[in-house]
Design a protein around this nucleic acid. Structure first.
Lengths: 196, 196
DNA sequence: GCGCGTCTGGGACACTTGTCCAACTTCGGG
DNA sequence: CCCGAAGTTGGACAAGTGTCCCAGACGCGC
């Protein structure tokens, strides 16, 4: 097994640990235990723990992107329906993997505090915003509408809402309240769609 | 100095440390150093570190409440203006004390991972939602309007938006983008206000 | 003055952490 | 066959952690 293979295996194991027990529990020993490797392998495959966490963040962002794009089901023709379905699909994703979603936030904030990783969050959110913009643009052609405000700005608002909904749900696990918030957000966003 | 006084002093010192260096840096030694106490005083004043963090969370929530209510300036008569002013006031608060705001998120997520504190976040967010509802209701009488959707639901959406805006700004520190998001959110929320 | 409960604080304990190292195995090309 | 590079691994280290303890100081009612 090459050093490069070990590195990606360790990153995956680290994500599993962070998902299950949080960032503060992702010690080198916990990670190698999850990957079923001896401790010595760690610093042979990766220079430092922070370096590995950088890989983990990129792993999370990639996964998040897949989930977001997968939620785009073209069943709805009504823009209102499309918005609600997409937001609900995201909420379902959060409820299915709460640890993963929390890990995302923990990693972002850990990175912000670490001098060697504090450039990551900006990149991470740029990726999210670009992703949301992509989905919104796809929705334009797909639904035969156009957004009456710049897609980039709307994308940021959408990410704002998904982040906020996720945070509140993680805190109180109130499914019904989260769904009502999504309904309300849908009603608030729908007016930005005009028929092309 | 009584044990109770020591405890609140330690909570304040802990918040200072979390604000400056993050939750993971808030060790017992760092906290007593900030409070200028000997290490032995710590476990005389408070049973455990987690117990103190519980105090810190309540401290943060209280501070947050003061900030939210302080932002409610009755200059605007237009509901649209009132919404934008309030959201902008919150953003200003975040920009003035970014560490404090990040500490809030870090504490919430730390609490979620800790078996002895995992009841805190629900309470914390219930307080936020109640606070937002309070502000919204005050706005009704103050502006002579009424909200066309239940205040409790609108309150949750408002907290969702402030949380989301804060997270994104902490990540990329893009002032202009955050303000555009607030403008857009204002446009999205304004239609929920009807003249009473 | 005295005794006792409250407070003080320095030191220690057991444990975990990230990182490193030196010895060991494996294996492909000359 | 052999040798050197790549891979492997158990153990060690220094630093840092939460928590505890005990000898002492203080202050106040009797």
């Amino acid at each position: 097994m090459s050093a490069a293979e070990r590195r990606v295996a360790l990153a995956r194991a680290a994500l599993t640990v962070v998902d299950r027990d949080g960032v503060h529990a992702a010690t080198t020993r916990a990670i190698v235990a999850e990957a079923q490797m001896p401790l010595g392998s760690f610093h042979y495959a990766v220079p430092s723990r922070d370096e590995l966490l950088r890989d983990v963040v990129e792993l999370v962002v990639a996964d998040e992107g897949d989930a977001a794009l997968a939620g785009l089901l073209g069943e709805a023709v009504d823009p209102r329906d499309a918005i609600r379905r997409t937001l609900t699909a995201y909420l379902d994703h959060v409820r299915a993997q709460p640890g993963r979603e929390q890990a995302m936030f923990e990693l972002t904030q850990y990175a912000l505090r670490s001098p060697e990783l504090d450039d990551l969050p900006a990149e991470q959110y740029a990726r999210y915003h670009a992703l949301a913009a992509e989905v919104l643009t796809a929705a334009e052609t797909h639904l035969g509408i156009r957004w009456t405000v710049p897609v980039a700005e709307l994308a940021r608002l959408v990410v704002t809402i998904t982040d906020g909904v996720t945070l509140a749900w993680l805190a109180d696990r109130d499914d019904a309240a989260a769904e009502r918030t999504i309904d309300l957000a849908t009603a608030a966003l729908a007016p930005f769609a005009a028929s092309a």
